[in-house]
């Protein structure tokens, strides 16, 4: 390929990408996520659709628990080692620092914070969720390995709380992701959070912490609800 051809191709692509940008403003998809063509180092042209190429769009499957005593043993281990994702989605996250510091010290109860969803199995939805955050929360939640648990803090997650009439925040979290434990309060005190963890542990030990399977089972319903309010849906249906 001559240099001129290459330049022409690049110019053409630039024009197309400009058109894409204009289109994207209407369709909410970030220009970088638009389907585009890239020139590989060898000069061949590859089509790239960033949204679908980088992730698998496959639906989640239900994961059967092991049987009998083994599952009980594993559940005990799961219950005593809860790794919480360090994602402060709302104002309740201000009560997380007291929990990891001397006053309340949740480490002694086997609860720890992890910075990445891949390594966490509990997600604290700390209060209200704006639609913008909900999108990230869904994505994060789906990235967490199963079994995973959700603790919802405060009024906002139950029925909208103070922001029940806000155009920006959702009212009911259980419409979008399954919730294991709700903790009342606005915001709940650290002690109430610890009580929530205690409750979660009980649930897990009883084998009731199977909300991830519920999510897989009712996946279409949850997804429909999510898509109803997230108008700029520019990610795959399931974010592995």
């Amino acid at each position: 390929m001559s240099e001129k051809d290459m330049n022409d191709k690049v110019n053409e692509m630039l024009q197309r990408s400009e058109a894409n940008v204009k289109k994207a403003e209407k369709s909410f998809i970030h220009p970088e996520d638009e389907e585009r063509e890239v020139v590989a180092p060898d000069g061949s042209i590859i089509k790239v659709n960033p949204i679908y190429d980088y992730f698998s769009g496959e639906k989640p499957k239900e994961e059967k628990p092991c049987s009998g005593i083994i599952e009980k043993f594993l559940n005990w281990a799961r219950a005593e080692s809860i790794w919480v994702l360090g994602f402060g989605t709302g104002c309740g996250s201000i009560e997380i620092p007291p929990l990891v510091t001397p006053r309340f010290d949740m480490f002694r109860f086997g609860v720890q914070m992890r910075p990445t969803p891949r390594q966490s199995n509990a997600f604290i939805i700390s209060g209200y969720l704006s639609v913008k955050t909900l999108k990230r929360v869904i994505r994060t939640y789906e990235q967490m390995p199963s079994p995973k648990y959700i603790l919802a803090l405060g009024s906002c997650t139950i029925n909208g709380g103070m922001y029940y009439d806000s155009y920006s925040t959702i009212n009911r979290l259980d419409k979008y992701i399954p919730v294991d434990v709700y903790i009342a309060g606005c915001m709940p005190r650290p002690e109430a959070l610890l009580a929530g963890f205690t409750k979660l542990k009980e649930l897990i030990k009883e084998g009731k912490g199977e909300k991830a399977n519920e999510y897989a089972r009712n996946f279409d319903e949850y997804k429909a609800n999510q898509k109803k309010i997230i108008k700029d849906w520019n990610m795959p249906d399931y974010n592995w």
Binding site: I158, N159, G160, Y164, D165, S166, Y167, T169, I170, N171, R172, K175, N225, K228, I229
Partner: peptide, 8 residues
């Protein structure tokens, strides 16, 4: 909000 976010 009430039309969009399903109040309980």
């Amino acid at each position: 909000s009430q039309n969009t976010y399903f109040p309980r």
